[in-house]
């Protein structure tokens, strides 16, 4: 399975990955509408962590032994059989946040403003290149 690789030495902290992730997961998929018209605003599944000159964009690592999958009581958090991606079935998610409690990387977020569901990276649904990678201006994220 391909992973998003993080090269923190080239992360410039611009957060274009966050912006484009949000757009990708918005209703319209159009950047200006996603920000200015959609309410509630979509939620980015990637987050840039920053301190001083160090910064990097973090999103779900799709762990081999994913604790979130093991700890999900409804079976909403599951591993995709085809491409081994860890996905959250939003229909089944009841918002118990066990996944958030158990995630070692802290990359699952509550979409609290909108719905009580766990929100996490879905690798853009199996595209050739997730949008965070495609829009990183400095190749600080690669998909390999």
């Amino acid at each position: 399975m391909k992973h998003i690789k993080i090269h923190e030495e080239y992360c410039i902290g611009c957060r274009l990955c966050e912006i484009n992730c949000l757009v990708k997961h918005s209703h319209t998929g159009k950047i200006i509408k996603a920000f200015k018209e959609e309410s509630p605003r979509a939620f980015p599944r990637i987050r840039v962590e920053e301190e001083g000159c160090l910064s990097f964009a973090l999103q779900c690592r799709h762990c081999e032994d994913a604790p979130c999958v093991e700890n999900c009581m409804t079976g909403a958090m599951r591993r995709d059989k085809e491409n081994a991606t860890v996905l959250c079935d939003e229909e089944k998610c009841v918002g118990c946040w066990m996944c958030i409690m158990s995630c070692p990387c802290g990359v699952i977020k509550r979409e609290k403003k909108t719905r009580r569901i766990a929100s996490k990276c879905d690798l853009c649904g199996g595209v050739d290149e997730p949008v965070c990678v495609a829009h990183c201006p400095n190749e600080a994220l690669t998909y390999e």
Binding site: H7, E9, C11, I12, C53, N138
Partner: peptide, 8 residues
């Protein structure tokens, strides 16, 4: 160092 990172 914040700026030099910008050139990969």
């Amino acid at each position: 160092p914040v700026l030099t990172k910008r050139l990969n």
